[in-house]
């Protein structure tokens, strides 16, 4: 039981890291541009598909990722310039609708260009095995790679935001947008850059998960809602909040899926636990979100000045 628990904890951490990569971009775009981007999940999907094609083209997953990153950055940049830029003045409702439209377009375009069947990405041999972390705790190498690269990216973001000029602008933007533009900063370039950064983070998340789940149409639509739950729970605009909430939700969701049924069985006869378990574990993250918002309507770590 305890080894299983540890393994599930690692699995939860891996999901959490992935959610963080998505949520980081969302919360950046939200915090600075006040823009709700439902289509963030489409960038995640595009990351997976572009990386899949490049992996087959170059013959190596690693090169696939290396070449896919700039492509996703360009797509994100174009997305901002062509559509998103014209929506900053509109309200959240318009954002939701326009980006909902983008989801429809992206899903259809992906089906038209790659077909409906999705792509399985082969991994090099040194990534597709397992390692024994502790005695009896055997864990897939690639999932460890996801955890470690995700944590590295998180550390990089922390450095970027805390110690660089760009980070200073981002923090300033999140707390007071007007002030930043008053400082004579080229706002439109900053916004486009931040948006492209968010796109790359989402794309990388897609590239990392694709070798596990395959690149499939609509893969982003399933996870984007969870990513929104993360930034809402964490507090919109807060990178720290996004990180903590992502790890928390990743672990809770995984442990829920794994143990909730057994816990229910203790209190109830097996038959109803059998169906109530999966249903309740699907609802778990939404329940957490509702509780958090009921107690703290601004999320766990709201940015200090708004």
């Amino acid at each position: 039981m305890s080894t299983l628990f540890l393994i599930q904890l690692l699995n939860g951490l891996q999901l959490g890291v992935l959610l963080f990569l998505l949520a980081a971009g969302l919360t950046l775009v939200f915090g600075i541009m006040d823009f709700v981007n439902l289509a963030h999940g489409s960038l995640y999907m595009l990351g997976a598909f572009v990386c899949a094609s490049l992996t087959f083209f170059t013959g190596s997953f690693v090169w696939g990722v290396v070449f896919a990153i700039p492509i996703i950055a360009i797509i994100g940049y174009l997305f901002e310039v062509l559509i998103v830029r014209h929506l900053y003045e509109s309200n959240h409702l318009d954002h939701v609708l326009a980006t909902f439209g983008i989801i429809l377009i992206a899903d259809t375009l992906v089906q038209l260009s790659w077909g409906p069947e999705g792509i399985a990405i082969p991994l090099p041999d040194y990534l597709s095995g397992q390692v024994e972390i502790l005695p009896d705790i055997i864990f897939p190498t690639f999932r460890l790679l996801i955890i470690s690269s995700g944590l590295l990216i998180a550390a990089g973001l922390y450095w970027l935001i805390t110690y660089t000029r760009l980070g200073m602008l981002i923090r300033a933007g999140a707390s007071n947008r007007t002030m930043v533009s008053a400082l004579g900063i080229d706002i439109s370039t900053l916004f486009a850059g931040v948006f492209a950064l968010g796109a790359v983070l989402a794309g990388v998340a897609g590239m990392l998960i694709a070798p596990i789940t395959e690149a499939t149409i609509g893969m982003g639509n399933d996870i984007i809602i969870t990513a929104f739950v993360v930034i809402i729970v964490g507090g919109i605009g807060s990178m720290k909040g996004a990180f903590i909430a992502a790890i928390l939700i990743g672990i809770i969701d995984t442990l829920g899926r794994s143990f909730l049924k057994d816990i229910l069985e203790i209190f109830n006869e097996s038959a109803s636990a059998e169906t109530a378990g999966p249903a309740l574990s699907s609802m778990l993250i939404y329940i957490i979100m509702a509780i958090v918002l009921a107690l703290r309507p601004q999320g766990l770590f709201p940015p200090k000045v708004r």
């Binding site: 609708l97 439209g101 983008i102 377009i105 259809t108």
Partner: peptide, 8 residues
């Protein structure tokens, strides 16, 4: 596809 374009 056209529906999404219409939406935007």
């Amino acid at each position: 596809l056209p529906f999404g374009v219409l939406l935007i």
